[in-house]
Amino acid sequence: MITKSVLQAADVAKIIAAADKEAAANNWAVTIAVVDDGGHLLGLVRRDGAPPISAHIAPAKAHTAALGRRESKIYEDIINQGRYSFLSAPTIEGMLEGGVPIMVDGQCVGAVGVSGVKSPEDAQIARAGIAALG
């Protein structure tokens, strides 16, 4: 049996604050979602002006990154390279860039998903949030 870190409420608040700061610095209206390692929502902020649909897309991206233990962009790339059958993968909806797993000591403890601007910018915001954990 191994011991594994878990995200606590203070960690989620720190991630969201740092991601929100990155979004604000660039004047980006986005939704930021943080999930645990099972893809369950722990925190969500929809910034002023963020499209309503982003409140659905951001958690889906985070869910995909957490369950896959990899960035959601990988799945987008697989599909864009012609493997369309991957769209039928069960319980995975956020197969767009912008979901980034949170890795601690080689273990996934959760993920951040962002939606509302260009996908590379969404990922930039997610990484900024994760970086706040140190």
Rank of each mutant, 00 (worst) to 15 (best):
I53C: 04
I53T: 04
S54L: 07
S54G: 00
H56V: 13
H56E: 15
I57Q: 00
I57D: 02
I57W: 07
A58E: 03
A60P: 01
A60Y: 01
A60H: 05
K61Q: 01
K61H: 06
A62H: 00
A62G: 05
A62T: 08
A62K: 04
A62W: 02
A62Q: 01
H63K: 14
H63W: 01
H63V: 05
T64P: 00
A65V: 05
A65W: 00
A65E: 00
A65R: 11
A65I: 04
A66Q: 03
A66T: 02
A66S: 06
A66P: 01
A66L: 06
L67N: 01
L67C: 09
L67I: 10
G68M: 10
G68A: 13
R69Y: 09
R69T: 13
R70I: 09
R70G: 00
R70N: 08
R70C: 11
R70K: 06
E71I: 08
E71C: 09
S72D: 04
S72Y: 03
K73Y: 04
K73N: 04
K73H: 10
I74N: 12
I74M: 14
I74Q: 07
Y75H: 03
Y75G: 02
E76R: 01
E76S: 02
E76V: 11
D77Q: 05
I79S: 07
I79T: 06
I79V: 09
I79R: 12
N80Y: 03
N80F: 06
N80S: 12
N80G: 12
N80R: 13
Q81A: 04
Q81W: 02
Q81P: 03
G82S: 11
G82E: 01
R83G: 07
R83V: 11
Y84M: 15
Y84T: 13
S85W: 11
F86T: 11
F86S: 10
F86A: 15
L87A: 14
L87M: 15
L87C: 03
S88V: 13
S88G: 13
S88L: 14
S88A: 15
S88M: 15
S88P: 14
A89P: 08
A89T: 14
A89K: 08
A89Q: 00
P90A: 13
P90R: 12
P90F: 14
P90I: 09
P90C: 12
T91R: 14
T91H: 09
T91N: 15
I92S: 11
I92P: 01
